[in-house]
């Protein structure tokens, strides 16, 4: 079945990103399709390109990028949530100014329309919050 995921909490401070990650791995192992992961509110920090955790820790941002490469999962960052937190993707930065390309590889930026589409197109939508 198609499952979409929504993450509303920042990584490292809350468990949501790790719980979602483990859930996604189990779902893929069972043959389910992860239709989209939508990062909302403080969840947008999961996409921060400059995240550099100590070398002996899990790298949550890199882990998400790897998910996109290995399984083609659509990683979507809410544009409004990102702008409020200074995470500007190139197309946004060119309009409003600021540091370009703040999103790590594999993520793309979009509006809530893609969240709604994910809810409609998926068989299940699971939210992980703070």
């Amino acid at each position: 079945m198609k499952i979409s995921i929504q993450i509303n909490a920042s990584p490292y401070q809350y468990q949501a990103a790790d719980t979602a990650w483990n859930f996604i791995q189990a779902a893929i192992d069972k043959g389910h399709e992860i239709y989209r992961v939508f990062f909302y509110h403080d969840g947008v920090y999961n996409a921060h390109r400059d995240s550099r955790p100590p070398g002996d820790e899990r790298d949550i941002v890199k882990r998400w990028s790897g998910l996109q490469v290995e399984h083609g999962v659509d990683l979507v960052v809410c544009v409004s949530s990102a702008q409020r937190r200074s995470l500007l993707e190139q197309s946004v930065a060119s309009k409003v100014g600021g540091y370009e390309n703040a999103l790590a590889d594999g993520f793309r930026i979009a509006g809530l329309g893609l969240l709604m589409e994910a809810v409609i197109e998926s068989d299940r939508h699971v939210t992980f919050g703070a």
């Binding site: 079945m1 859930f23 791995q25 189990a26 779902a27 192992d29 069972k30 299940r124 699971v126 919050g129």
Partner: peptide
């Protein structure tokens, strides 16, 4: 976690 996925599969809707 595999059982977590099964619960999501067998119950609709899902509310967090």
């Amino acid at each position: 976690y595999a059982g977590f996925v099964d619960l999501v599969e067998h119950n609709n809707p899902v509310r967090s």
